[in-house]
């Protein structure tokens, strides 16, 4: 028995070895190095020099740090729920029994397959305050659209709206969750004379709550790291730094200003924020998330 166990453990070790190496090299080492660098004056061209907590102290005083943090929080607070609602709604729609589902699913997923950078350029045109299609459409129903791209009040809302096109991934995961809901539960609800809304509210949502939690956590991690679209659409976070996000400032510090120690300190603060938010989500969800039979 012990021999068998030992054999199994050896096999397991061999099977897991890629990840053990990967974890050590691509995660554990960089994480430790990153902590160390965050207490150093460092750029790749120079050796790290220990400067204590100076990077963190400077960060606390750095108004741009706070600005990018609040921009990022704004984006996450609006884009995350919006994305979740849209993704769940689309998944619910796609879970009905109508013809041509294969087409619809593909259509909704399409934007996730087009390179984000080329989408960003399209959005620059669509949201142009003077001649963009969005304002043309708003004008059609008698609303004078704002200057989405050059008005600091509207540039972030524009980005939030844009993020909706990228819900394909989350939508597919919800859809998978929906297909896992036992049909008998709906049949039982039908017998009780439940309306469609009641069924959604009392059967569907509780049944897919683990998926919602999963997507919520992945969403927090993703939205807090928003980079590509604003980087391409708004160089330097213009206008007036209204679209200057955390990861953009971190990138600038690391690779443009050659302040890599400072960038590492920023990275660690971001990690802690994500950690805390994830803990909170897990704690709050304890009561509401329903884990099947297990």
């Amino acid at each position: 028995m012990t021999l068998k166990r030992r054999k199994e453990a050896t096999a397991a070790f061999l099977f897991a070895s890629p990840w053990l190496i990967g974890f050590a090299v691509f995660l554990a080492y960089p994480l430790c190095a990153s902590i160390y660098y965050s207490f150093c004056d460092y750029s790749v061209l120079k050796l790290p020099v220990w400067i204590g907590t100076r990077n963190y102290e400077n960060l606390m005083r750095d108004e741009i740090f706070w600005k990018t943090l609040s921009n990022t929080a704004y984006y996450a607070i609006f884009a995350l729920p919006l994305g979740m609602v849209v993704a769940i709604s689309l998944a619910l729609l796609l879970n009905t029994k109508v013809k041509g589902l294969a087409f619809y699913r593909t259509f909704f997923f399409l934007p996730s397959l087009v390179p984000m950078v080329s989408l960003a350029v399209l959005w620059l045109w669509m949201f142009n305050g003077e001649s963009g299609l969005v304002n043309a459409a708003l004008g059609g129903i008698g609303i004078k659209g704002p200057n989405w791209l050059s008005d600091p009040e509207w540039s972030k809302p524009a980005l939030v709206l844009l993020s909706v096109w990228g819900v394909g991934n989350a939508m597919v995961i919800y859809l998978a969750g929906l297909q896992d809901v036992p049909v008998q539960l709906y049949e039982a609800a039908d017998l009780d004379g439940a309306t469609a809304w009641q069924k959604t509210r009392n059967v569907t949502l509780p049944m897919i709550s683990p998926v919602i939690l999963f997507n919520l956590i992945m969403g927090i991690i993703g939205t807090l790291q928003v980079f590509t679209v604003p980087y391409v659409m708004f160089p330097g976070g213009s206008p007036a730094r209204s679209t200057y996000f955390y990861t953009m400032y971190l990138f600038d510090n690391a690779f443009r200003y050659q302040k890599m120690g400072y960038a590492c300190a920023m990275g660690w603060i971001m990690f802690l924020i994500i950690l805390v938010l994830t803990m909170i989500s897990l704690r709050l969800s304890e009561k509401h998330v329903h884990y099947g039979g297990s």
Binding site: P152, G236, S238, A240, R241, Y257
Partner: peptide, 21 residues
């Protein structure tokens, strides 16, 4: 050596004055 940062700051100041912020 800090010109990239300084320039970003001046450009931002331009934006904020021009937008009357």
């Amino acid at each position: 050596g800090i010109w990239p940062e300084y320039e970003a700051e001046l450009n931002n100041a331009f934006d904020e004055v021009y937008l009357m912020k």
